[in-house]
Design a protein around this nucleic acid. Structure first.
Lengths: 231, 231
DNA sequence: AAAACAGGACTTGTATACAAGCTGCGGACA
DNA sequence: TGTCCGCAGCTTGTATACAAGTCCTGTTTT
């Protein structure tokens, strides 16, 4: 929705760089220069600077004047706070959705879940699978927000979600198991909503959100250089 | 905290323009040109463009390529969604704060409340009073977030809060009554927290947040040109 | 008279040259 | 040998010229 190209050039560079950062092709901490990027895409520094500024706004770049620009380190404290906000918001939104649940909602959701199942059963290479599944996961949550009539809330959310997106990609590096658990969480979540099981809904959401995070200590400690030192 | 001047020029222009927009000196819908602004501050277009981009990120400007740049209209649907998020988040954060409440927290809060009372009793001109009180109101909420150990959550929040800030300024145009109600809401809120009155806490927060919004129909209809038409 | 078209005056987007500032290397000096 | 100073080479910040697109207006054409 926001991907509407505005001027083409600067927007395209922004999208491209964002994708590379989110997929860790530009790893956290690495330096990235305006001139270098400009030459790479055969354009001038101006649109590159615009893209850099936007990425800085997303918290994905850190621009240090007269020193250099660097891909920001992953801040686990910030991830934790993002998860907290997500927990609180989704508990509220999905509670609202549950109260207005209707049989007519079922088809669309089952369709997404079915697709996710097919993805997991497919023989895609791990990296592609992870990528496709995360996209479908976002679609799942988007749809639920939309059904709850909180589309704008989701929009706001996505504007501060970039850093978490990157962390998620990192988590799923070769960890096929996480995707299965994500899918399982979706099924249970939908179960709670469609059965109007308010009692389990909140607990279910909390578990679903913190699931991967809590079991991430090993994979995090394997790449300490990606993370912001704890103060 | 984020007000650290980065390069001076572009940051200064950003701050100045933001202040003017938030205080409605640059009213919603009005046009603002890069060249004009550059000449006004005796600088080139470049830092002005940077400032414009930042303000666009805050949702305060709308840049239409090759057409012009305009102060964005207030979007009541978006305000509504912001209030919803604020309601949900504060209910959670303040509930957490209540559970860890300690007598040692009292002094700082009472100090802020005392200052707000003094402001209301003072003989400041309406506009200055409103401005000072809103700042103090933010301090109040900031402090509560900080006491709850959710400082970063507040930080994230402020990054999407600009549009609501502007709306609040608008609401208090000559409406002294709103400030009194705001203060009263603070007292009751603190009462709930310090007495660990979970039962009334949520209701109290909801009322406090939507208080001004619900009674804003008259003042809104007086300036229809400031608002985005409802689709 | 009405409609189509062309041109000017404005806007923002892009390219490029130059200014300002940090870092680190290397040589001078104690 | 160790310390300090200065300059080269990099970075981003700023200024400015030009390109590209939109809108409005006046003229031309039908």
């Amino acid at each position: 929705m926001d991907s509407k190209k505005r001027t083409g050039t600067s927007r395209a560079v922004y999208e491209k760089l964002k994708e590379q950062i989110l997929h860790l092709e530009l790893p956290p901490g690495s330096a990235i220069s305006e001139i270098e990027t400009a030459e790479k895409y055969q354009i001038s520094r101006t649109p590159v600077r615009d893209a850099f500024k936007m990425l800085e706004g997303d918290g994905l770049l850190e621009i240090r004047p007269h020193i250099g620009t660097f891909v920001s380190l992953i801040d686990l404290n910030m991830i934790s706070d993002i998860l907290y906000m997500r927990e609180v918001l989704e508990q509220a939104v999905f509670r609202d959705l549950t109260s207005i649940y209707d049989k007519s909602h079922e088809f669309g959701i089952r369709l997404i879940l079915q697709k996710q199942k097919e993805l997991l059963d497919s023989a895609l290479p791990p990296e592609e699978l992870s990528r496709a599944f995360i996209i479908s996961d976002n679609t799942f949550h988007n749809t639920l927000y939309e059904l709850a009539g909180r589309k704008n809330v989701m929009g706001f959310w996505q504007s501060i979600n970039s850093q978490y997106e990157r962390f998620r990609t990192f988590l799923n590096l070769g960890e096929r198991k996480n995707l299965d658990r994500l899918y399982h969480g979706h099924e249970i979540l939908w179960e709670c909503i469609s059965h109007k099981d308010y009692g389990n809904l909140a607990r279910c959401i909390t578990h679903h959100i913190y699931d991967g995070f809590n079991s991430s200590t090993e994979v995090v400690s394997k790449h300490p250089e990606y993370f912001r030192p704890i103060e």
